[in-house]
Simulated assay, not measured.
Amino acid sequence: MRALAAAAVGITQASDAWDTVSDSFCDEDGRSADETGYANGKVPRDAAAWEHVETFLAHGARGSRRSTGRRDRGRLRRRAGQR
């Protein structure tokens, strides 16, 4: 669970850091004033967030399958009249 919590924090930090940078590429109305700079800035943001997403997928997906498997086995046993 610590790995998942740390991954969530990392994703949030990458997004929050981008909010500050993206504002510098926009005019007062919030429209992009520098399309190239804005597009180029998204690449490092996505890369930073993706590192944490990979951690989340590695730990979260494995844990989800494991717990779902136990529940499914329990349901099958109950249907078959077993414990």
Rank of each mutant, 00 (worst) to 15 (best):
D34Y: 05
R83W: 07
L4P: 00
E35T: 04
L57G: 05
G30F: 06
R45E: 05
T20D: 13
D34I: 06
D29V: 00
A39T: 13
R77Y: 07
D16G: 00
A5N: 07
D46M: 08
R71L: 13
V9S: 05
D27T: 13
T55D: 07
T36D: 14
L76G: 05
A8M: 04
G63F: 04
H59D: 12
G81C: 07
R65L: 08
R79N: 11
G30R: 10
H59T: 14
D27I: 13
H59R: 11
F56P: 01
A33G: 12
G63V: 02
Q82P: 02
Y38S: 03
A7I: 02
D46V: 10
T20Y: 11
R2V: 08
G37H: 13
D29A: 09
C26N: 13
S24Q: 13
D46L: 11
R2A: 13
G69Q: 05
S64I: 15
T20V: 14
P44G: 05
G63C: 04
V9G: 01
S32R: 07
S32Y: 01
P44T: 06
S67Y: 08
K42A: 05
Y38A: 07
T12N: 02
D16V: 10
D27M: 12
D27R: 13
A61K: 04
R75F: 14
A14F: 01
N40M: 13
G10D: 03
R73Y: 13
A8N: 03
A7H: 02
A48P: 00
V53E: 02
H52V: 01
K42I: 05
R75G: 12
R70P: 00
L76R: 15
A14H: 01
P44H: 08
R77T: 04
M1T: 07
L57C: 06
Q82M: 15
D27P: 09
A14V: 02
V43E: 15
R66C: 02
G37M: 13
A5L: 10
S32H: 00
S32K: 04
G74V: 11
A61C: 03
W50P: 00
S22E: 12
A39Q: 12
N40E: 14
G74D: 15
W50T: 11
G30Y: 06
R79S: 12
D23M: 13
V53W: 04
F25S: 04
V43H: 12
G30N: 08
V9K: 12
R78L: 06
R2Y: 05
T20K: 15
W18F: 14
D16R: 02
G41F: 11
A61F: 03
R31E: 07
G41R: 10
E35G: 00
A17I: 00
R66W: 07
E35A: 05
H59S: 11
R79C: 09
A5R: 09
R77G: 02
A47Q: 13
P44Q: 06
T36P: 03
G74H: 15
A49H: 03
R71S: 09
S64R: 14
E35Y: 03
R31K: 11
A80H: 00
L4D: 03
D16F: 02
Q13S: 04
D29N: 08
